[in-house]
Design a protein around this nucleic acid. Structure first.
Lengths: 148, 148
DNA sequence: GTAATTTCTAAACCTAACTTGAGGTCAAGG
DNA sequence: CCTTGACCTCAAGTTAGGTTTAGAAATTAC
């Protein structure tokens, strides 16, 4: 059993982020007699997974659902994690494919100058994008590493 | 010269979004005698570009910088837009490459079970990720189309 | 000429993912 | 015993990208 500060050092996450993740249902620490959080060593792996998944672009909600697939009453084994890793792999493949399709369409559009038409292939590509509605539109997603 | 409502219909953007974009420095409409915004037809293309760029995952700040490359005192030509499209293309290629590298690393990690170690290749992959600092950490970016 | 739209501004609200701050408690060292 | 540092809770602030609302003024339609 380790403290939140130790977990913070092990994972590189801030203490406040870990508490936030608990509130979000991503970890379920116990408490000692004094009311302080006590984490299992396997939570280091669990939170590391959260970090990696975020780098891959998943929201905390999606990550929570993914973590829910882990056995609840037993410390997850290497195989348990490997299963999750494979789901990841599939999702990644899909995203790469999407981007490649977009790239191909862009190639077609650069020449034709149709960048302006709502009928442009690039628009119809984004299916979900036109769903509109309210709330922020992180719809199509995919943030870049800040280049261009 | 067209009104904001017409521009809204042409682009599919909401009127409020267009006003917001003006505040963000993405378009610079003139005003008529009554104080209402009047846009140039070329703004249809300009805003369409904003929408596409967002689908590609760029932030409004990045898009603003990109648009700044367009000639300020002349209606942008097809060639002007093509230049920008090419910058896009390069950025897209980089992102796809990054994802492919991540995927390859993931393949290596699924087997070794090192998903938990901060020394895992996946972590060191994310260069910028460890930059930390304050503010929300949309750091590594890349949001998925919600699968997994 | 009046009714119905559209547009205007400014400010408040929304989600995601956290951080910061205030005010108080717990644990270890001297 | 006292101080220091780690921890606790709860509330409010932050950024991005917009939406919503309210009240007023300008346009358009009949």
């Amino acid at each position: 059993m380790i403290s939140i500060g130790q977990l913070s050092q092990r994972t590189g996450l801030s203490v406040s982020a870990i508490r936030f993740y608990e509130a979000e249902g991503l970890v379920f620490p116990g408490r000692n007699s004094g009311g302080q959080r006590r984490f299992m060593r396997s939570d280091i792996r669990r939170l590391s997974f959260v970090m990696i998944a975020q780098q891959f672009g998943f929201t905390l909600g999606e990550i929570r659902e993914t973590l829910a697939q882990l056995p609840k009453e037993r410390t997850p084994t290497k195989e348990d994690w490997a299963m999750i890793g494979q789901g990841f792999r599939r999702a990644l493949d899909m995203r790469i494919e999407t981007l490649e399709r977009l790239r191909d369409n862009l190639d077609g559009c650069i020449g034709c100058g149709c960048l302006s038409l709502p009928s442009c292939a690039l628009f119809n590509q984004g299916d979900a994008a036109s769903a509109g509605g309210s709330g922020p539109r992180y719809l199509m997603g995919d943030k870049p590493p800040a280049d261009l």
